[in-house]
Amino acid sequence: MTHRWFSFTLLLTAMTPAFGQSETSWTVPRTPDGHPDLQGIWTNKTVTPLERPVALGNKAFFTPEEAKEFTQSTLDRTNKDRRGGGVRDVLNAYNAFWWDSGTKVLRNMRTSIITDPPDGRIPPLTPQRQAELQERALAVKVRCERPGCAITNGGQSGPADKPEDLDLMTRCISFGTVVPMLPSAYNNDYQIVQGPGVVAIDTEMVHEVRRIPTDGSAHLPPSVREWIGDPRGHWDGDTLVVDSTNFTGETRVRGADENLHLIERFTRVGPDTLLYQFTVDDPTAFTKPWSGEIPMAKTDGLLYEYACHEGNIGMKDIIAAAKADEKKAAAQAAGKK
């Protein structure tokens, strides 16, 4: 591992396409149809943040010493017992013991997953999208001046009058770890299986499956919208390019709307590295496109079934608690009369 780490460090001076050249004895494995074989179980767990800490400015890469220091301080912070009592106690109780973000920065030594814009941060939302989201937030705030709101998995307080009020993660519908494939609190594992004309990706987090046709077929009609979009793939040399559209606008992609156009690139760059690159293009939501990359690491473990919905006691408790809260307030109000 030490040797490989060193190789990657050296490569930092080169551009990413040169990645594979350090592995002189390695050639891209191929499936019978001649395309690169992307199959295997890959993980994107990392302590590297999606957005670069503001203090780092335009510094895109860590030196090995800086990476060590950043890793240590991140682990120290997340390892803390963060319980402080109060209503948010349970949320805060999740520390590094519960998380599976690994103990390493990305192999490419970048200071953020986002590579463009150069400051490594998501560009501002368009004024129109900002206004939309503000309006929505205001409606939530107004509603939550009355009793019967709840804090959900997203950590936000919001109405819980009906299931649809709660976020997609609390409802076990989608965890935002699929489009784009970004690491989350745990279950950062993906299995790729390839057949003729199709690449399929099973996401361990709530078993979201993407079946990507590479047969040149067209996107679904624009009237059809899907939570994780409609992916279509094609091969650009040895890179699988996946183009996804037809989103609902409710997907958790940092403020994206239904015009989200996601472009992803998958390239085998070494025996145990799959380079994942993505661009989020959504002109009605973001003032410019943004891109990122994660060298995903091959892992030996197997994917297990995460039956989130089947065991979703949280939904019942959240709605029941909000209802009880409302009832209690109504009883108090009646008592005063």
Binding site: P163, I228, I319, A330
Partner: peptide, 29 residues
């Protein structure tokens, strides 16, 4: 058929009325 494919059928959202409906707020709203 040429356009044969699996579509997204995340049926959770269609089960929620059954699962959580009795916790709904109709009677206190």
């Amino acid at each position: 058929e040429k356009n044969a494919q699996l579509m997204e059928f995340k049926c959770i959202s269609f089960s929620e009325d059954v699962l959580y409906g009795d916790l709904g707020k109709q009677e206190v709203s």
